[in-house]
């Protein structure tokens, strides 16, 4: 599949998918989206790159040993989930209790609310990305 058309298309489309996934991730708290969907989109972008450039080339290009990275991503995601879940326990609130803060208004962004759930979602994103990528690298041969 490593034709010029695929390569060029992948180069254009993959960043777009990344941006979309980030948008979905951030808005996921109370509208459509979330960590899982964002992760699946990220993985689909990466798999597009894999298809266009081939696994070996991409690994060499990014200069990483992917399975190691994937595993670290998976574990750190899980740890993040555990951590965000357990912090309320230290304050004697039930596991997974959420809190949110309203950030001071910044001129063009308007009122920003940040909730602890986003760290949980980030953990989900990391876990799902890591596990899906390790599955991909396991199957691709």
């Amino acid at each position: 599949m490593t034709t010029l058309i695929t390569k060029t298309a992948a180069k254009i489309v993959a960043p777009l998918i990344f941006v979309t996934s980030m948008v979905l991730f951030v808005q996921g708290h109370n509208t459509i989206g979330g960590g899982f969907v964002a992760a699946v989109l990220i993985v689909s972008a990466i798999s597009l790159l894999y298809i266009a450039y081939g696994t070996e080339n991409l690994t060499r290009l990014l200069n990483i040993y992917p399975s190691e990275l994937n595993r670290k991503m998976l574990v750190s995601g899980l740890m993040l989930i555990l951590l965000t879940g357990s912090i309320p326990v230290l304050f004697n609130m039930p596991f997974l209790t959420q809190a949110y803060w309203v950030l001071p208004t910044i001129s063009f962004l308007g009122e920003l609310k940040i909730s602890t759930a986003i760290f949980f979602d980030l953990g989900v994103l990391l876990t799902v990305t890591g596990s899906l990528l390790s599955i991909l690298s396991g199957v691709s041969r």
Partner: peptide
């Protein structure tokens, strides 16, 4: 107060640490 949750927390945490 948190005791019913402790076993799953411990087993998940130890699984993560072992993975690391």
């Amino acid at each position: 107060a948190h005791s019913p949750m402790l076993p799953i927390l411990i087993s998940l945490l130890s699984a993560c640490i072992i993975l690391l």
